[in-house]
């Protein structure tokens, strides 16, 4: 499954409101599939958010964060700033997305 990152960064009352929706199953390692096999643990365990290449936030989600994680944070900044999100999963998979503040 393609692991997409949907990003939205908008100025609102002086702050950048950044919203993300990451497509990811966030498997806890306890769920069973249709044939009764346990689905291996697979979840995003690091997220970094950068503004214009400078580190702003670091998040460490556990497998108890919902599937297809939704994230909402607020930053100081201005229109046109570039917000980047990087994630790494416990399996070593990575993805990133960069978006301009509107």
């Amino acid at each position: 499954m393609a692991k997409k990152i949907k990003a939205r960064a908008k100025m609102k009352s002086g702050l950048i409101e950044v919203k993300y929706k990451i497509t990811h199953p966030m498997e806890t390692g306890r769920r069973k599939d249709k044939s009764g096999n346990i689905v291996a643990e697979e979840y995003i365990n690091h997220i970094t958010i950068l503004k214009n290449g400078k580190e702003m936030l670091r998040l460490s989600p556990n497998s108890t964060v919902s599937a297809n994680p939704y994230l909402f944070v607020k930053l100081n900044g201005a229109k046109g700033d570039e917000i980047t999100l990087l994630w790494v999963s416990n399996t070593g998979e990575k993805n990133s997305s960069t978006t301009k503040v509107k």
């Binding site: 580190e55 460490s60 108890t64 994680p69 100081n76």
Partner: peptide, 26 residues
Amino acid sequence: ENLKPVAMRVDFESADVAAFASFRVK
């Protein structure tokens, strides 16, 4: 009550970040 009780840790690395986070958990 979760088996793994710590759901999320958020580190604020810059003064430019509001100490605020919203997300969804199981």
